[in-house]
Design a protein around this nucleic acid. Structure first.
Length: 264
DNA sequence: TAAGTATGTTAAG
DNA sequence: TTAACCTACTTAC
C-alpha cells in the first residue's frame, strides 16, 4: 500500500527494529546478492523516507535505496526467521527482528551523491519536517497540465499517490481537470495544508482515511468502505451530494471524482 | 484454477 | 500511449 505515509512508517519501523545494530543482509532470491554482500555485517545508522523512496543508511557512504513500486512489500517478524517464502529480494536480520522485501521496483546500493540526485528530482514531501509547498506551487501554477495529473507527478509533490490525489481534490472541491495554472493561490494553499493534514493522519494511523466523521456512518472504527470520499467508489452515491461518483482512466491510472462537488 | 486488479515507475514505440 | 516489471489479493468460472 505504498503512498508516502507508508514509506515514512517503514523508515520508522526499520529504525526502531534495526537502528544502531549490525545487520545480516542477504538475498534469498539471489537477485540482490551483490548488493547484499556490500551491506552484510554493517550497522544501520539511519532510515529515512523521501516521497515514496526509502533510504537505509549503512554508513560510510553506502545506502540501500528501495522503491516499492506498485506491489513491493516489506514484511517484519521476530527471530528466528522462517525459511524464505517465495521471491525474497532482501532479508535483513538484526538482534531480534527480521525483515523481508518482495516485489520492489528499485532495490540498489547507492552513495550519498546518488541519493542527493534522486532527491533533487523530487518535489516537496508534505510529510517531511520544515517543508514548504512553495516549489510545488511554482511548478503547478506554471503548468497547463490538469491538476489531477500534477498531484501525481513526483517532481511536483513527492509522496502523493492515486488515493491522496483523488481524496484531496474532493476535499478541496477542485476539479481534477482544472489546469494547474488556473488554480488560484487561495485554493492551492489550503490544498497543500490539507495534504499535510491527511498524510500526517495516514502516517499516524497506518491507513488512508480522508472522510470526515460527519460523512461516514460511524465516527470511530472506520470500515474500509467508509474511509474515502471518491477513491474506488465509481457509480456509488457521493457522500455529500448523493450523485454518482465518476471514473475515467487518466494517463493510465484510474481517476475518481464527483462531478457535482468538484465542478470548480 | 484462471483471470483480473492494484495505493507505481520506467522505457520503448 | 503501451507494455513491462512480477506480488498478492479478489473475482469469475
Amino acid at each position: 500500500m505504498p503512498e508516502g505515509h507508508t514509506l515514512h512508517r517503514l523508515a520508522r519501523e526499520h529504525h526502531q527494529r534495526f537502528g544502531d545494530h549490525p545487520l545480516r543482509v542477504g538475498s534469498p532470491q539471489g537477485r540482490f546478492a551483490d548488493g547484499a554482500a556490500l551491506l552484510d555485517g554493517r550497522v544501520l545508522a539511519k532510515a529515512e523516507a523521501y516521497g515514496k523512496h526509502l533510504f537505509l543508511d549503512f554508513a560510510d557512504d553506502r545506502w540501500l535505496h528501495v522503491h516499492l513500486g506498485l506491489y513491493g512489500k516489506w514484511a517484519f517478524g521476530e527471530l528466528p526467521a522462517p525459511a524464505p517464502q517465495g521471491q525474497v529480494r532482501v532479508r535483513l536480520e538484526g538482534n531480534q527482528s527480521y525483515a523481508d522485501l518482495r516485489g520492489a521496483t528499485v532495490c540498489e546500493v547507492i552513495t550519498s551523491a546518488d541519493k542527493r540526485a534522486i532527491e533533487a528530482r523530487l518535489g516537496p514531501d508534505p510529510l517531511r519536517r520544515r517543508t514548504s509547498g512553495e516549489n510545488a506551487w511554482r511548478r503547478l501554477s506554471a503548468s497547463r497540465s490538469p491538476v489531477g495529473l500534477l498531484l501525481m507527478n513526483q517532481e511536483v509533490v513527492a509522496g502523493v499517490g492515486n488515493v491522496y490525489r483523488a481524496e484531496v481534490l474532493f476535499r478541496a472541491g477542485l476539479s481534477p481537470f482544472r489546469e494547474g495554472r488556473a488554480v488560484p493561490r487561495e485554493v492551492f494553499d489550503p490544498l497543500w495544508h490539507d495534504l499535510v493534514t491527511v498524510m500526517r493522519a495516514g502516517l499516524r494511523v497506518g491507513r488512508i482515511i480522508t472522510t470526515r466523521p460527519e460523512h461516514r456512518p460511524r465516527a470511530r472504527d472506520v470500515a474500509a468502505e467508509d474511509a474515502h470520499y471518491v477513491y474506488r467508489r465509481a457509480g456509488l452515491p457521493c457522500r455529500v451530494c448523493t450523485q454518482p461518483v465518476a471514473t475515467e482512466v487518466l494517463a493510465g491510472r484510474n481517476l475518481f471524482w464527483c462531478p457535482t462537488c468538484q465542478s470548480s
